[in-house]
Computed example of a mutant assay.
Amino acid sequence: MQQDSLAQKLGLAIRAARSAKGWSQERFADSISMHRAYYSSIERGEKNITVATLARLASGLGVKPHELLREAQL
C-alpha cells in the first residue's frame, strides 16, 4: 500500500469523525490549537502526521487514536 493512500484514508476517517459532530474545520482546528490550513491538509491526506498529532486529533474528537485508525481500515 502506498504511503499516500494511508494518509488519505486516515484523513477521510478524521474528516468523518469531525463532520459527525457538526463541526467546521475552522472550529475544530481552533479547539485543538492547530492552524486551519494545516488541519485541512491532514484531512486531504497531504500530511504524514506523527503519533502525537494523531493523539491530539483523537482527543479533540473525543475518541481514542486506535478508533480513527480502525475507521480508516489501517
Results as ranks from 00 to 15, higher is better:
Met1Thr: 05
Ser5Gly: 12
Ser59Cys: 13
Leu12Phe: 13
Ala55Phe: 11
Gly45Leu: 03
Asn48Leu: 03
Leu10Gln: 04
Val63Ser: 15
Ile42Thr: 04
Ile49Pro: 00
Gln2Asn: 07
Arg70Ala: 14
Thr50Ala: 02
Lys64Gly: 15
Leu61Glu: 08
Arg70Asp: 10
Ser59Phe: 12
Ala7Gln: 04
Leu12Val: 02
Thr50Cys: 04
Ala20Tyr: 07
Leu57Cys: 03
Glu67Trp: 13
Phe28Trp: 02
Ala7Pro: 03
Glu43Ile: 03
Lys21Gly: 00
Ser40Tyr: 04
Gly22Leu: 08
Leu61Phe: 10
His35Arg: 01
His66Lys: 13
Met1Glu: 14
Ser19Cys: 12
Gln3Glu: 10
Ile49Glu: 00
Glu71Asp: 11
Ala55Ser: 12
Glu46Asp: 05
Ile32Pro: 04
Ala37Ile: 04
Val63Phe: 15
Leu69Tyr: 05
Gly60Cys: 01
Ala20Phe: 09
Thr50Pro: 01
Arg44Glu: 14
Ala16Ser: 12
Ser41Tyr: 00
Ala58Pro: 10
Leu10His: 05
Ile42Val: 10
Lys47Arg: 00
Tyr38Phe: 03
Gly62Trp: 08
Gln8Leu: 15
Ile42Tyr: 07
Arg44Val: 08
Leu61Gln: 07
Arg70Ser: 06
Thr53Trp: 01
Glu67Gln: 14
Glu46Lys: 05
Asp30Trp: 05
Tyr38His: 03
Ser41Leu: 09
Ala55Gly: 09
Gln73Asp: 12
Thr50Ile: 10
Ile32Glu: 05
Arg44Cys: 06
Thr50Glu: 03
Leu12Lys: 04
His35Ser: 07
Met1Ile: 14
Ser40Leu: 01
Ala29Pro: 00
Leu69Ile: 02
Arg70Trp: 11
Met1Gln: 13
Val51Gln: 14
Leu12Arg: 03
Gln2Tyr: 09
Arg18Gly: 10
Glu71His: 03
Ser19Phe: 10
Ala17Leu: 07
Ala7Gly: 11
Ser41Phe: 02
Arg18Pro: 02
Ile42Leu: 05
Gly11Ala: 04
Leu61Ser: 07
Ala52Cys: 04
Trp23Val: 12
Glu26Pro: 02
Ser40Phe: 08
Gly62Phe: 11
Glu26Leu: 11
Ala16Gly: 07
Ser40Asp: 09
Arg70Tyr: 10
Ile14Tyr: 08
Ala58Ser: 13
Leu68Gln: 08
Gly62Asp: 14
Leu10Asn: 05
Ser5Trp: 13
Ala55Arg: 03
Arg70Lys: 12
Lys21Glu: 05
Leu10Ser: 01
Gly22Ala: 08
Tyr39Val: 01
Met34Asn: 01
Trp23Met: 13
Ala17Cys: 09
Arg27Asp: 14
Asp4Val: 15
Ser59Gln: 15
Ala29Asp: 03
Ile32Asp: 12
Ala13Gln: 06
Thr50Phe: 08
Ile49Met: 03
Ser41Ala: 10
Glu46Ala: 00
Leu61Trp: 09
Ala72Arg: 09
Ser41Gly: 02
Ala13Tyr: 00
Gly62Cys: 12
Ala17Pro: 09
Ala72Trp: 05
Gln73Ala: 07
Leu6Ala: 01
Ile42Gly: 00
Arg56Tyr: 10
Trp23Tyr: 14
Gln25Ile: 13
Met1Cys: 02
Leu12Asn: 06
Arg36Thr: 11
Arg44Ala: 10
Asp30Phe: 10
His35Tyr: 03
